[in-house]
Amino acid sequence: MIVVLAKAIPKDEKSCEKIVEFAQDLIENTRKEDGNIDYNLYSNTGDGVLLFVEQWESKEVLGAHLETEHFIKFGKNIADLVAQDLIIDVYEAEATDL
């Protein structure tokens, strides 16, 4: 399984609200994609950082996601709303016993 943590740092509170608004279409459509296990957006109101937490079956399906219309549209919509490029960390995860 592939886990993605993607941080968006909005320029200000109004930008944060707009990013969350634009993310609704992205989240809805991404959850319908083949190979998507989970896709959520979390907000820390203390520091304003938005965090996408994603789970994918493989690198290949994640790569296909990056080429979807809804992902590209989201990137264009938020380009002027973030203080810097998204900070994206990608991890390979495997199940383990406790």
Rank of each mutant, 00 (worst) to 15 (best):
Y42M: 07
N77S: 15
V61Q: 07
V20D: 00
E28M: 09
K7A: 13
A79P: 01
G35E: 06
A83R: 12
G48V: 04
I88H: 03
R31G: 07
N40M: 08
Q55H: 13
F52T: 06
I27G: 02
E54Y: 01
G46T: 11
L5I: 12
E57Y: 02
G46L: 15
Y42W: 08
L86T: 10
N36A: 10
K32G: 12
A8E: 02
I37R: 09
T30D: 03
L26M: 14
R31V: 08
D97G: 03
I87A: 09
V90Y: 03
A6W: 00
D80G: 05
N29G: 04
K14Q: 14
A23S: 15
I27Y: 04
I88A: 03
S58C: 11
V90G: 05
N44P: 09
T68D: 10
L81H: 06
A93Q: 13
T68H: 07
D80Y: 04
L5P: 00
I88G: 00
A23D: 06
V3G: 01
I88F: 04
V61C: 12
E17G: 00
E33P: 03
I37C: 09
K73R: 15
H65E: 02
S15Y: 12
L51I: 14
L86M: 14
V4P: 02
L66A: 12
I87H: 02
T45S: 13
V61M: 03
E92V: 09
E17W: 00
A93V: 15
E21K: 10
E33R: 00
E67T: 09
E94M: 12
P10E: 03
V49L: 07
L26K: 06
D80T: 10
D25T: 13
Y42G: 07
L41N: 05
D85P: 12
M1S: 11
T68F: 06
L98E: 12
I19A: 01
A93F: 06
D89W: 00
T45Y: 07
A93M: 14
D80F: 02
Q55I: 05
K76T: 07
I27D: 03
T96L: 12
L62V: 02
A8L: 15
V90E: 09
E13A: 14
N36E: 10
E60C: 06
G35V: 05
V82K: 03
K18V: 08
F22C: 10
A79C: 00
K14N: 14
E94G: 07
R31C: 07
L81M: 06
D85L: 11
L81Q: 08
C16Q: 13
K76N: 12
R31I: 01
V90M: 09
Q55G: 05
L50S: 02
L66P: 01
K32E: 15
I9Y: 09
W56M: 03
V3Y: 03
D89Y: 05
T68G: 10
K59C: 01
K18G: 01
K32I: 05
I87D: 15
I2L: 11
V61D: 05
D80I: 00
V49T: 15
K32Q: 14
S15K: 06
I27N: 04
R31E: 10
K32N: 09
R31P: 11
I78N: 01
C16T: 11
T68Y: 05
E33A: 01
K14M: 09
V4T: 10
K32C: 11
D80Q: 08
Y91A: 05
A23L: 10
L5D: 01
E67R: 14
V4S: 06
E21T: 04
L26H: 04
L98F: 15
